[in-house]
Design a protein around this nucleic acid. Structure first.
Length: 362
DNA sequence: AAGACGGGGTT
DNA sequence: AACCCAGTCTT
């Protein structure tokens, strides 16, 4: 090895260790309190990581408390009722996560005698655990030397490295993962991973200007040095949502409301909802529609139009309360209290549901 | 490689 | 109104 190479290697190592220390020290000082950090059991880390997929920490915390209170072990989860799980997940979104959680619990019971596996490869085979989550669990719960690159880390690394490309491109993602892997310390890997993530959430933020003034690694940051913080990550035009016009009929009989369960495998699979169909209907068409469904409307009250956004769909909703002479067979007629207590209502209908409480005198 | 899959906070 | 969040699965 030449003198020059020796120096470069030594310097790189020095920089790398300095970087690791800066991240670890910053994390130790600034990490937020989270219930799963107080007692980082693998089970807690697993549940929290699944809930945290595409979901903010503050949103997750109350769900996490309710979930582990009800199901505190892998075995309990493996034997859980689907309906109860869905109710616990109500409003959190991406409902396949909780179905997969139960499936994975079964897999852990079968293949790993109820113990959450420690290795990346074993974790990756479990339902609902992808690259990020496998790395997060193995490093944070078991101290394995694995990367955990989430949306925060992609952004942080893109700025550090001055990458002015679409972060969705596989080649770019691969490059960033390799860079993170090369920076990984031998010990405290979990804290290092969480440090990069936390830095992205608190300092190297996605919206607004990053708080470079308080960043522990700004001296190593290409974006900071070249004033490219606003250019990186590169903004990419998103695909437009498709729009769907829908009309909702909120059937009422004897103070009870008609709801139905959504199909498995569909959007909002297994959740409950009010009756609705595609299309915007009003006036006498509503009455005809109800009669075609086999109902006799005593009165029809229109509610306010609403819009509801999904990631890929925009629902433009018209809604009516329909007072019926008799309940419809295809729907479940329940009181508001019963629905609130035991049925997981799709959030798209939440506002209408709440309004019903205010209009019980109608 | 691209689309499906929720809902909400922030700007 | 647009962005994006401690992503994964399916096609």
């Amino acid at each position: 090895m030449t003198k020059q190479n020796e120096f470069e290697k030594t310097e790189a190592l020095f920089l790398k260790e300095g970087f690791q220390k800066k991240i670890l020290d910053w994390f130790q000082e600034h990490k937020r309190a989270m219930p799963w950090r107080e007692n980082p059991l693998p089970y807690y880390i697993w549940i929290s990581e699944i809930m945290l997929q595409q979901t903010r920490v503050d949103t997750v915390i109350p769900y996490f408390h309710r979930f582990i209170e009800k199901y505190d072990t892998v075995e309990a989860l493996a034997n859980a009722e689907d309906e109860t799980l869905l109710k616990l997940w109500e409003g959190l979104g991406y409902y396949n996560r909780v179905r997969n959680l139960k499936i994975a619990a079964g897999e852990i019971m079968e293949r790993h005698v109820g113990e959450i596996p420690e290795n990346y490869e074993d974790l990756l085979k479990l339902k609902g655990i992808g690259e990020y989550t496998a790395g997060a669990i193995s490093s944070e719960a078991f101290g394995k030397k694995e990367i955990a690159v989430d949306g925060n880390v992609y952004r942080v690394m893109a700025r550090l490295l001055g990458i002015r490309e679409d972060l969705k491109k596989p080649a770019v993602m691969k490059k960033i993962k390799e860079e993170v892997r090369s920076l990984l310390p031998d010990v405290m890997v979990g804290d290092f991973n969480q440090g990069l993530i936390e830095l992205g959430a608190l300092v190297c933020i996605p919206n607004g200007s990053p708080r470079c003034g308080v960043c522990p690694v700004k001296d190593s940051c290409t974006a900071y040095k070249e004033n490219l913080q606003e250019e990186i990550p590169l903004k990419v035009k998103k695909k437009e949502r498709r729009e769907e016009e829908r009309s909702v009929l909120i059937f009422r009989h004897d103070g009870r409301y008609g709801i139905r369960k959504r199909e498995e495998g569909a959007l909002l699979a297994g959740l409950y909802e009010f009756y609705h169909e595609e299309g915007h209907y009003e006036g006498h068409l509503i009455e005809e529609w109800v009669e075609n469904l086999g109902g006799k409307p005593l009165a029809i009250y229109p509610l306010k139009d609403k819009k509801f956004l999904f990631t890929h769909i925009l629902w433009k909703l018209k809604a009516y309360v329909v007072e019926l002479e008799a309940p419809l067979e295809d729907l479940l007629f329940l009181t508001r209290e019963e629905i609130k207590m035991s049925y997981s209502l799709a959030t798209a209908f939440r506002d209408y549901f709440e309004e019903l409480g205010e209009n019980d005198g109608l």
